[in-house]
Design a protein around this nucleic acid. Sequence first.
DNA 1: GTATGGTTTAACCAAATGGTTAACAAAGGT
DNA 2: ACCTTTGTTAACCATTTGGTTAAACCATAC
Lengths: 205, 205
Amino acid sequence: MKLKTKDSNTETDILNAAEVIFQRKGLDGARMQEIADEAGINKALLHYYFRSKQLLFETVFHKAFSLIAPQIKAILDDNSSIDDKIKNFTNNYIAFISEHPYLPNFIFQELNRNTDFISKVQKTIGFPTIDKFKKQLEREVKKGTIIPIKAEQLFINILALNIFPFLAKPLIKSITNTDENTFNHLMEERKTEVSNFIINAIKRK
Amino acid sequence: MKLKTKDSNTETDILNAAEVIFQRKGLDGARMQEIADEAGINKALLHYYFRSKQLLFETVFHKAFSLIAPQIKAILDDNSSIDDKIKNFTNNYIAFISEHPYLPNFIFQELNRNTDFISKVQKTIGFPTIDKFKKQLEREVKKGTIIPIKAEQLFINILALNIFPFLAKPLIKSITNTDENTFNHLMEERKTEVSNFIINAIKRK
DNA sequence: GTATGGTTTAACCAAATGGTTAACAAAGGT
DNA sequence: ACCTTTGTTAACCATTTGGTTAAACCATAC
């Protein structure tokens, strides 16, 4: 028998369980019964609290996306220097994902499967645009501290180098023939490796 | 009524249809009936030719993976210089994916969902390891033409910068506020942008 | 022509799945 | 004590889904 403490009510139990199952199996692969089991409750309760699978899923997705959005916002809307943005994002993001390894896959997969999610989420979350970053970068390029590069391309590169390894984990582990520990060690190294790489790439010679 | 030409038999019709549906919806999201409709045949024929959904899926996945594997192999096992490897892969891969935009998502998603796929595929396809590339890179680093960097990290970076934009397409389009055409144009630019970026990053100053 | 073999289909089936219902339990207010 | 609201459950339901079957179709060989 499950005892409820003050901070463990059924609703958050369900959300936590749904998070685990959806991130592991995706929207289509997840079973409502499986989520109920994971939460240790009756299946009908899922519908009592969240009406439908779709709504439960959207709640989970929204929550997941809310965790990542601010970090991207930091690159685009922050007042720090380009160098600092790169260093901070690299360091913070890799640390963050190491705690939530399923998150990137979950988000990108469902974003691709259901394209209108992004417009839905865009409305509810304060969603960043690239404009400010663009101006900042143009200033730096004009100053001559940075080689000419489009803001869009640099932004893509920053995201790519940080996020991709976690999306491609099984492939990378297989090709580089590394076990879980060695992979984690590689990611740990990337906290500085990646920012050095980027800064080196855009620095004037 | 569908006429069969010499090179259009039912089996390849099914494979083509399955490719489309599986890449669009994933293993769990795809419906056998939908694949049959796409192929313009009776659902029972799917089982006549491929026994089960799982086997049909594995055939499609295997085929998809076979398209990408040789390109990765080119980085790792080729005899060309590091610079050429980067230039060629960048140029070829981006061109290739522009023709098969669903491919990367499909592969990485299912690779994450079903980890033992990779060992299955590894057995049937001549699958590259990183050893040769590692030695080549160590030689270059010792020569002093390239800054010190681990082969694993450089390899990850090359893949990341090339593959990630296609995985993150919906997010990127949304944040950079670009339409389909502009996105494609950005990718076209990356054919040279990415290799310059990488080479700049690893070149001795 | 008709026997033979692979190919294709409509109809069918059992299991699984998201969702509902009605009854019951707990909690809280009066 | 009694009633109302909220939370929880077992049983149930309609539909969907992967898969099967038995009969029909059709080319080719005899």
